[in-house]
């Protein structure tokens, strides 16, 4: 564990807390893509299958349980909560996310480190995580205005990916640890998807104005 990875894990955790805070305090999920949340739930469930086969550390186990349960809780809230679900922007959230699932499943079957159930699921979850933010970014772009908490949610998610890249660079030099290239390539693609969002986020922060994305 190094400072970059810890910062990455913490910004990831903060992003989820910000999202839960928004849903809890405003009783609204407007601006939040259910499709992205469903993809994250699939990502965590397929990646953390090792919860039942390998023990790494208490920290690792707790974080995995938190990620799986919070992502399922968020999906439940948007779909089933009697107040929250009314604010869901269904007509803006039309990304065909199951196509991403299909494409990532095919890619994982073709490109993986080892042909075992767990390893193919792991590769699938890495590929899917890289593109899971797309429905959310499309929704934000369509709605134009982004409320503060939603903006911060996406910002922290992007920050998490950026810290993970720094973590891999650090591990390479300090531990001679080679991060798997599947993770590296997917991680770079994932972080790049946030570049545009980051640009507008910093402009709005610098001007102290509301975050607006160009149509």
């Amino acid at each position: 564990m190094n400072v970059f990875r810890f910062a990455g894990d913490m910004t990831h955790l903060i992003s989820i807390l910000v999202l839960l805070l928004k849903i809890y305090t405003t009783k609204s999920c407007s601006g939040i893509s259910l499709k992205t949340q469903e993809l994250y739930a699939v990502v965590f469930v397929t990646r953390y299958l090792d919860l039942v086969t390998d023990f790494i550390s208490v920290y690792n186990t707790v974080m995995k349980v938190v990620f799986i349960s919070s992502s399922l809780a968020i999906v439940w809230c948007i779909r089933r909560h009697k107040v929250v679900r009314r604010s869901y922007d269904k007509e803006l959230d039309t990304f065909r996310h199951w196509l991403l699932v299909g494409a990532c499943a095919v890619l994982a079957l073709v490109v993986h480190e080892k042909f075992s159930f767990q390893e193919v699921c792991w590769a699938f979850s890495i590929y899917l995580e890289a593109v899971a933010i797309l429905p959310q970014l499309v929704l934000l772009q369509r709605s134009g205005n982004v409320d503060n908490l939603t903006g911060q949610y996406v910002f922290f998610l992007g920050a998490y990916r950026a810290f993970y890249i720094l973590n891999w660079i650090y591990r390479y030099y300090s531990e001679q640890h080679f991060t798997r290239w599947i993770s590296c390539v997917s991680g770079i693609v994932q972080t790049a998807l946030y570049a545009d969002f980051f640009y507008y986020y910093f402009i709005s922060w610098k001007n102290n104005s509301k975050l607006q994305l160009p149509a």
Binding site: R5, H12, D54, I56, N60, F67, K114, E119, W122, Y164
Partner: peptide, 10 residues
């Protein structure tokens, strides 16, 4: 061998 297969990152 087993060490290499463990995914220690989240």
């Amino acid at each position: 061998e087993k060490e290499d297969e463990i995914h220690d990152e989240l």
